[in-house]
Computed example of a mutant assay.
Amino acid sequence: MMWHPATQVLTKDDQAFDPATLSWAVQSVGPEAGEPVTPGEALRRLAETHRLRRVPIGIIGPREATAEQCRIAEAMGLELARHGLQMLCGGKSGVMEAACRGHARGGGLPIGLLPDEEWHAANPHVAIPIATGIGPARNAIIARACLVLVAIGGGVGTLSEMALGLQFSRLVLALADAPHIDGVARLASVDEVLERIAGRILSAV
């Protein structure tokens, strides 16, 4: 892939990427020189144009999280914000709160899809609380709404979201000690997760 700074266009072979539809189309780019970029670098450049469609990325994990799970979740939320990506989570404590804290710190507006009937039940870092009043059934909405799900630790609730994500043909990624499920890629770092997310958005991997 090539990034063209003068026109702020990302190209691949004879195609240009449309950040509004997240799709590639044949387009004449012009004679200006481009520079090669990785999927992650391309995503950062596109984010800077403020034209990238913000299809949510889901962060899922336990309310009763370990310190390490929270550290990873906060770093993940921060990097999503830095890459111009919208974050969606369950809006409660533990991994969800840590991810929201990181996302907000990076300038993002984390969305919390709450199982509760009132928005006040959201953790203090949720910028956009959505009270569903449907309890654990909201897990299906999170799995359906997100382009990618990132599991950080977790128990039965996280397991259900991961399984639903696979059922809905979403990319499901696992960090730390998230449940093991066939079809879920287990990755070792936030950077690896970001490259996979970028690849899915850009349909490069």
Results as ranks from 00 to 15, higher is better:
M2Y: 14
W3V: 07
W3K: 09
H4Y: 07
H4A: 06
P5E: 09
P5M: 02
T7F: 03
V9S: 00
L10G: 02
T11G: 09
Q15H: 13
A16E: 04
A16W: 00
F17G: 00
P19Q: 03
T21L: 06
T21K: 01
W24I: 05
V26E: 00
V29R: 01
V29Q: 03
V29E: 00
G30K: 10
P31H: 14
E32F: 12
A33M: 10
G34T: 10
P36R: 12
V37H: 06
R45G: 02
L46F: 07
R51L: 15
R54Y: 08
P56L: 05
P56F: 01
I57V: 15
I57Y: 08
I59Q: 02
I59M: 03
I59F: 04
I60A: 01
G61F: 03
G61K: 02
G61V: 05
P62A: 13
R63Q: 15
E64R: 11
T66I: 05
E68V: 14
E68Q: 14
Q69F: 02
Q69G: 13
C70W: 06
C70F: 01
R71S: 12
A73M: 02
A75V: 05
A75D: 14
A75K: 13
A75F: 03
M76W: 10
E79K: 07
E79F: 09
E79Q: 13
L80D: 06
A81R: 03
A81K: 02
R82A: 06
H83C: 10
G84C: 06
G84N: 00
G84K: 01
M87L: 15
M87D: 04
M87Y: 04
L88W: 05
C89T: 15
C89L: 04
K92C: 11
K92Q: 15
G94K: 10
G94S: 08
E97L: 09
E97N: 10
E97C: 12
C100L: 05
G102W: 09
R105S: 13
R105K: 15
G107W: 05
G108V: 07
G108H: 05
L109T: 02
L109G: 00
I111D: 07
G112L: 11
G112W: 07
G112T: 07
D116E: 13
D116F: 14
A121Y: 12
A121M: 11
A121Q: 11
H125V: 03
V126A: 04
V126N: 04
A127D: 01
A127T: 11
A127C: 09
I128N: 13
P129Q: 05
I130L: 14
T132M: 11
T132Q: 11
P136E: 13
P136H: 12
R138E: 03
R138K: 10
I142K: 00
A145G: 02
L147K: 12
V148P: 00
G153S: 04
G155I: 00
G155W: 06
T158A: 00
T158K: 02
E161V: 11
A163E: 12
A163Q: 13
L166V: 03
Q167E: 15
Q167H: 14
R170L: 09
D177A: 14
D177L: 12
P179K: 09
H180P: 06
G183R: 08
R186V: 13
L187P: 03
L187D: 02
A188W: 12
A188T: 15
S189A: 09
S189V: 14
V190P: 04
L194F: 08
I197H: 04
A198V: 12
G199V: 09
G199R: 01
A204W: 14
A204R: 12
